[in-house]
Design a protein around this nucleic acid. Structure first.
Length: 273
DNA sequence: CATTACCTGCAA
DNA sequence: TTGCAGGTAATG
């Protein structure tokens, strides 16, 4: 489910709820695989008594930074979400991990499809993990030239490259389709045949689509919830994603759907060349 | 580059 | 029953 705007929203919500709190070492799970091989007891020992310095996003990871420089990395994959509840309450449906806090609350990790992960990361593991990712598209130094530079010398179509987290971090199937529509670029356009002016348009489109979605607290199609349990609003503003057959907002042509790299791909064949 | 695997739920 | 879903890693 979650792409950059959803993870950003969830991380910001968790930061407001958890900054300054302390894990008590209690770990409940009914799906130990989510911990990536670390035993629940070992995770509990690692985080017991650790304060939460802050919670932020990197790529599609929620990073819970702890007082000793270690961190928890939460990846929601297709259907994950996070929430904070009372430790006295029973875990809700599809909650697979719960981490106790010293103040009587609990951080819950919910994930219908069980693809998500909650990993303990020491500083070296954090560095190794985040080194795999490309630049943050909303960072101030992510200029149109920086975007074009990421594609320099790469062959292939725009959409698969934009989905590649090592090229640019954080984009997924929804926002790639939306950004390409806004930029007027066909998802199968070769990256080698994009002009300077088109890179500038694509850069603006990516930033606009992401910032608008963050302002609307993300896109909730099925499982995604904000860190406070609400649905996002951006699903009401999608131009092409999930709109096969509906008229294009710009030219009325029915939106097309094709497969690109095994992903459903939505675009306007008249507006996107 | 394509295919498969990882999982569950839901709509056609 | 089949196909599809916001992601990604592993395998030919």
């Amino acid at each position: 489910m979650p792409e950059l705007p959803e993870v950003e929203t969830a991380a910001n919500d968790l930061n407001g709820l958890l900054a300054g709190a302390c894990f008590d070492g209690g770990v409940w799970t009914d799906w130990p695989k989510a911990l990536g091989g670390l035993a629940p007891e070992a995770l509990g020992r690692a985080i017991a008594g650790r304060g939460i310095a802050r919670v932020f996003r990197r790529a599609k990871w929620i990073v819970v930074a702890l007082s000793d420089g270690s961190a928890l990395g939460l990846h929601l994959r297709m259907s994950g979400s996070v929430s904070v509840s009372s430790a006295a309450s029973a875990p809700g449906p599809h909650v697979h991990v719960g981490l106790g806090l010293e103040d009587g609350r609990r951080l819950d990790f919910r994930d219908v499809r069980k693809f998500g992960r909650l990993l303990y990361l020491d500083p070296a593991a954090q560095a190794a993990l985040f080194a795999r990712y490309g630049p943050e598209p909303l960072a101030p130094d992510f200029t149109p030239e920086a975007l074009a530079g990421r594609f320099a010398g790469r062959r292939g179509a725009l959409k698969p490259l934009l989905l590649n987290q090592a090229v640019v971090a954080g984009l997924g199937n929804i926002y790639v389709d939306e950004a390409l529509f806004r930029a007027g670029l066909h998802p199968l356009r070769s990256a080698a045949r994009v002009s300077r002016r088109e890179w500038t348009r694509l850069h603006a489109a990516i930033r606009r689509v992401l910032t608008d979605a963050i302002a609307r607290k993300g896109t909730t199609l099925r499982d995604y919830r904000t860190g406070t349990g609400e649905r996002g609003e951006n699903q009401r503003h999608l131009a092409v994603y999930g709109r096969e057959g509906e008229p294009c907002a710009r030219c009325e042509t029915p939106i097309s759907r094709i497969e690109v790299g095994q992903r459903g791909t939505h675009f306007c064949l008249k507006c996107q060349k």
